[in-house]
Amino acid sequence: MLKKCFSYCAALLLLTACATSTERTLYNKLGGEPGVEKIVTNLVQNIGHDEQIFHYFAEANVTRFKEHLAWHLCDISDGPCTYTGDTMQLIHDGMTINERDFNHMVDLLIEAMYEADVPHHIQNQLLARLAPMRKDIIYR
């Protein structure tokens, strides 16, 4: 236990110390453009088969949704993009998404990442960057 703790701490220190320009971005770790695309495609498929939250997307333009989501994910994972689309707040205004459905969407995203062979520790890093957006998405 202690040993494991040490090795994780050491790994963490190493990661921080080596955070130079040669360090791979989270975007790279997600598999770059094809990786993010795969996640988005899987997610859209999962939503399509989902009874609980499909209705939020029933009238969405799927192509546009996929493009914008990939663009946004690229930006927040330090990829070579700058997201200038609608804000999370604007997109979700009036949708009155509740906490349960939001968390269900997170479960579908995790599933999509597993299906795209994104390792668990990389999944968590992406989730950590998405988490602060929840307040702009639910109960609006």
Partner: peptide, 9 residues
């Protein structure tokens, strides 16, 4: 803390 310790929660 999501992914806080070597990517683990």
């Amino acid at each position: 803390h999501l992914g806080a310790v070597g990517g683990l929660n």
